[in-house]
Design a protein around this nucleic acid. Structure first.
Lengths: 201, 201
DNA sequence: GTCTATAGTACGATAGAC
DNA sequence: GTCTATCGTACTATAGAC
């Protein structure tokens, strides 16, 4: 199933964005030509340029749409869990599930060299979804469940492990499916910033 | 100072490789044209194509040279420290120092979309330097200083935090210089996989 | 809004003098 | 080995019919 929502975009735009997601991740932005997009999406050159100003605008729209969708899903998770540790586990599970169900999405967000084709864009880690991840850790410090330390250090250590494992999974370096590592990785990542030594469930 | 060793390569090759490192990281592989390389390196088109088969070969040679140099530096560190924890700390310090002194090197290794322009290359995390990092963690399990767990999970959790913080630093998301975070980040990253709760130095 | 056909350009790579 | 000049190509983007 497509990850992108059908609400904000026309059918043509959506077809192009979905093809762009696949092709940009698999071949790279610069190795994907407009003719490639035409073939993969079934939309003609003219229609593509009617819907988007240029090739770069396709990437920008795609990025923006993905980040919006991710924000929406994060908010749902935050609504279901109140405390830092529960939120951290739920967000980690969601990241790992997304990496398995929509590997292209995760790959595009995590490893696409956005700077290379969107030079004006701020680094991905300054986008709202990453701010939300950090805010949860900050909440933990206020709650007393996370050790007082530099927020960037805490965020890097906790989510860094999750994201690194996801990257290893996307690169085909893991023997088992990603989700089978969920419990183990979230436990050790949480342990790195938890305030006490009782790790029990 | 240049990161690359002058032993294996001629002066012309070295000039091109150094320019390629800078330009590939700052503008990206596909946004760097041969004329760009000519301007930046002072070497003419003809000489570049005399030294390298094509543009991709420049990237491949660069990657190979960097990995070799990194391997050499890692071996030095392993020779200076015997136990897992000491090696982990020293390797982490070395990664952070390298990121500060040679940001282009770190950026090229960590974030360059190698797959995009070197489709045949294995993922970077299967290269020898990354294997060495994992081996050190494995050694820790045998020694009894690191908890028994899946090796990939342990490596992701421990080095993932370090690498994530380095990425944040390279992206300009940190307030202070990277090396000022060294003690804090290595401590929490080690804590995530350490076997007992005594974290003291 | 959608399409085909094509203009214009910039690039990778080569030829060939020195 | 190094250089300049240039070829051929493949791309992005546009023009204009429907």
């Amino acid at each position: 199933m497509s990850y992108l929502n059908t609400q904000n975009h026309s059918n043509t735009v959506l077809k192009v964005l979905n093809s762009a997601l696949v092709l940009f991740v698999e071949k790279g932005f610069f190795n994907t030509s407009i003719p490639d997009l035409v073939k993969h999406s079934g939309v003609s050159t003219g229609s593509i340029y009617h819907a988007f100003q240029d090739k770069q605008a396709i990437a920008e729209t795609l990025m923006s749409a993905l980040l919006q969708q991710i924000e929406r899903e994060q908010l749902q998770i935050l609504n279901q869990h109140g405390r830092c540790k529960a939120r951290f586990y739920a967000l980690s599970k969601w990241m790992i599930d997304t990496a398995e169900e929509h590997p292209h999405v995760m790959q595009f967000i995590l490893t696409a060299r956005h700077k290379e084709f969107m030079p004006d864009l701020k680094p991905i880690c300054s986008s709202q979804p990453f701010i939300t991840l950090r805010n949860v850790i900050h909440q933990g410090m206020l709650e007393g469940s996370v050790q007082e330390m530099d927020l960037m250090v805490a965020a890097a250590s906790s989510y860094g492990g999750i994201l690194r494992l996801i990257q290893l999974g996307l690169d085909g370096m893991l023997e088992r499916p990603l989700n089978t590592y969920l419990d183990e990785i979230t436990q050790v990542c949480w342990k790195s910033i938890a305030i006490d030594q009782t790790i029990g469930k």
